[in-house]
Design a protein around this nucleic acid. Sequence first.
DNA 1: TCATTTCCGTGGTTATAACCACGGAATATT
DNA 2: AATATTCCGTGGTTATAACCACGGAAATGA
Lengths: 219, 219
Amino acid sequence: MQEYYGILCDFTLFAGIKSEELGVMLSCIGAEVVSVKKDQIILAAGEKPEQLGIVLAGQLHIIREDYDGKRDLLAAAVQGDIFAEALCCAGVAESPITVMAVTDGAVLLLSFARLLHSCPNVCAFHTRLIGNMLGLLANKNIQLQNKMEIISLKTIRSKVLYYLETFVPKQGNQIKIPFNREELADYLCVERSALSHELARMKRDGLIEYRKNVFVLRK
Amino acid sequence: MQEYYGILCDFTLFAGIKSEELGVMLSCIGAEVVSVKKDQIILAAGEKPEQLGIVLAGQLHIIREDYDGKRDLLAAAVQGDIFAEALCCAGVAESPITVMAVTDGAVLLLSFARLLHSCPNVCAFHTRLIGNMLGLLANKNIQLQNKMEIISLKTIRSKVLYYLETFVPKQGNQIKIPFNREELADYLCVERSALSHELARMKRDGLIEYRKNVFVLRK
DNA sequence: TCATTTCCGTGGTTATAACCACGGAATATT
DNA sequence: AATATTCCGTGGTTATAACCACGGAAATGA
C-alpha cells in the first residue's frame, strides 16, 4: 500500500492532502488496494457500484454492453484515472458499464458511503476530500457540456471554429491545439479525411491558416 | 422566504430534509432569497461564481457569450432548476456563462463555501445536503455522458436505434418516448424533417414501427 | 543514413443529412 | 362546429460528410 503514497497525493481526489496524512485518511475511509489480473472484472454491468476506483497501475477498459450483448469500448483508464465515481455518487442501482483490467495492475477502491459520511473523529481531510470529489464531478460536467456544445453543431466548419474559439481567451488568435488531426477528428466526432478536406476549404476561404497543430484564426 | 418552504423540500438538493428543518438549515448555510426583475443579470460572464442558485419563481436564461459577443441560449431554467452549480463546485474563476431573468421572479442563492464546510454546530443536514449535491452533479454527468454517446454517432439511424435501445431494459420492445418529433430531433441534434425521413426509411426496412411517440423495435 | 511507420492532405465517389415548401391530420381554441 | 395552431410526413434539391485509396512529408528508429 505505502508504495503508492507517492503518486496518490498527485491525484486530483487527494489534492491538498500531504503524503504523511494519507495513511490515516485512507484507513479512515476504508480504502483498499486491490491487485488485478488481466481480464479481471472490477465492476460488472448490472451490479450496484458501491466503490469508486482509482487506477494505481496497469490499464482498465470501461465498456458499455448493449442490452443484446454488443460490447463497446467507452474509455481506457490509466494511472491516476478515476472510475465509477459518477455511478457511486448518483446511487445508480445497476451499473450500465463494465470495468475490466486489460493488463495486470492495481486499483485503489474507496467506499462511497464512507467517503461521504464524516468519521467519528471528524478528520479534517474529509471536507477536503469531499470538496475534491465535488470539484472532480463538476469539472467533468463542464468539460462534457463544452464538448456537447461543439459536437451538436451540424457542420465540420462550425465545429472547428467553435473549438478554436475556445482557445482565444487564453491564447489569442494563434492557437496551439493539443491534438493531431486524427485526435481532433475524434474529438469533434467527424471523419479524419473529411476534417482535412474542410480545413483546406476553410483556408481557401480565408478563415484560418494552419500548420500541423498550430492554427491562426483570421478575423 | 417561508412562502417557499413548501416547494423547496421537493427540490432534489433538499431531498430528505423536512420542511420544518429547512429554516435552520438555510440560515446555517447562509441562503438568501432574491427577487429578480425581468432582464436582470444574476450571474455575469467573467465574474467568479460564488453562489449556486435555484429558481423559485419566474424564468431564467442561461446564455453563453462568444469572445466576440455573439450570444447563444444554452438553456432555460424554471422553478426548481438549479444553476451555476458546476461552476461553483469546480471553482472556475471566470464564468463562461451569463444567467439572466427573462421574467420577474425569485431565486434562492446558496454560498458554495458555506455549503461545503460544516457549520460549527455540525448540523445533520449538512451531510445530507452535500450528498444531494454530489448526486445532482453525478446524475447530470451520467445524462451528459449518455447523450454524448448518442450524438457522437454519425447517422440518424444509429442515433435513433441507440436512443430507443436505452429504453429496452425498462420498457421492453414497445417504447413510449418523452419527446415529440421536434424535441427528439433536437435531442439527437438532427433536423426534424431529416429525422422523419429516416424514421420512414427505418420502417420501410422493417427495423421499427411507430405511431406518434410510441415506437416498437423489431428485432 | 536508410528503412519504417505515422501523419496528413487530396481526388473522386457515394451516402447521408440539411433545407425548403407544402399539405393533411391531430389538437387546441373560441 | 368552425377556426386556428401545432405537429408531422413527404417530395425534391442541395450541401455536406463519409468513405476509399493513394502518395508524399515528417517523424521515428535501427
